[in-house]
Design a protein around this nucleic acid. Structure first.
Lengths: 201, 201
DNA sequence: TCTGCCCCATGACAGCTGTCATTACGCAGT
DNA sequence: ACTGCGTAATGACAGCTGTCATGGGGCAGA
């Protein structure tokens, strides 16, 4: 019997996945949580074979939670299940020690198969994303560029961003200009969107 | 026996919801589709009692699909299930003839209850969103403002938007300025985000 | 040590942005 | 007929944006 923990902020989706996996003879959902902050505690308590984590969650995101779990309780393997198939997510998930990465577009019957593979010590990776990771290469943005781009995503102006991160407006614009160049876009909004799509934020 | 159609672009979520609802004695999933374009055809073919539709789907969105269904086959009632609890979505869903509106944050066991209520001719509406609709009031944006704001959301500049919608750059800026005023924001990016959150796009 | 990279900053430039006043047309409702 | 609204356009203004050149400091690797 393979025991499972499910983490997804959308209660309906979480419950539905529990129902889906509960139909399998050899799988048992032993814990469900709705935020990344609760994952570690629940894993400590229930010691599941596999933790199925969503990336987008309030509080701690699924990838950070995966890092916690693989560091403290390596007996529990991690399978990341996410809405957004961003190459950067996959890279970061694997760096965090996740054993599998599946997008929510995949057929539902493959989820149980992925869980079994991961539980058996294997790895499951979306093939189309894997190729994108190879093509896309590593994240070229510096820390400051990411930070400033993240603020720009909210719609703040350069002077506003400067005040928030304690820099001069001119420096903010330099970082933005650099990020625009690296993303191959022509303004901060496009740059922020592209960076997010590639998982560079 | 209540028959159901499920529409959600994420196969995993769709399958999981089918599993969840399939556990209920009195419910039966008779059709599953992954895009809004397929909804009407599937409803015509299977004549379900309730169509459970996601809003965010490729092609035709869930609300437009709901309008098609309630117009052509009023015997099938529509329950909208969405990730984003935007007030404007609720308003538009009800205008489109939907009988229920549920966000994916709601507990999974309530979904079956919502389905039964809708099937019985009742209405299900998320109470917190209902109050927001009352407070928020109707969409104040004009057609042009929505159109221009939608382009701005993509990160296009005023001259670029002007070329796309066949207007003068000055006129585009006038519409944007007006939209910024109506949303109570201070630039086009914030305005577009706010408008989207309120379901005004 | 020297090179390279990241960081921070300034100044200058052309171009874009948000606002306002003003004009004009068409199309409703009164 | 008159008013109001949406649409479209222009011109002007201050301020913001993206780019470039240039300077400096720190910190790693060769």
């Amino acid at each position: 019997m393979i025991t499972l923990l499910l983490a997804d902020d959308q209660a309906l989706v979480r419950g539905a996945m529990a129902a889906l996996l509960g139909l399998e003879e050899d799988l048992e959902v032993v814990a469900e949580v709705g935020s990344g902050d609760e994952v570690l505690e629940a894993v400590r308590r229930t010691r599941p074979d596999v933790a199925v984590l969503d990336v987008e969650m309030p509080g701690l995101d699924g990838i950070s939670a995966a890092a916690q779990v693989t560091r403290e309780l390596p007996g529990t393997r991690v399978l990341i299940v996410t809405t957004f198939g961003r190459p950067g997510y996959l890279r970061r998930a694997l760096e965090a020690g996740a054993s599998g990465f599946v997008v929510k577009d995949t057929p539902s019957h493959e989820l149980a198969a992925a869980v079994r593979t991961v539980a058996g010590g294997g790895r499951v990776v979306d093939p189309s994303l894997a190729t994108e990771v190879v093509i896309g290469g590593p994240n070229p943005l510096t820390d400051r560029e990411r930070q400033v781009l993240g603020e720009a995503l909210e719609g703040h102006s350069a002077p506003a961003i400067a005040a928030r991160v304690h820099l001069s407006p001119g420096t903010v614009r330099n970082h933005l200009s650099s990020a625009i160049g690296k993303t191959g876009t022509s303004n901060r909004v496009e740059a922020a969107r592209r960076a997010q799509d590639l998982g560079w934020l």
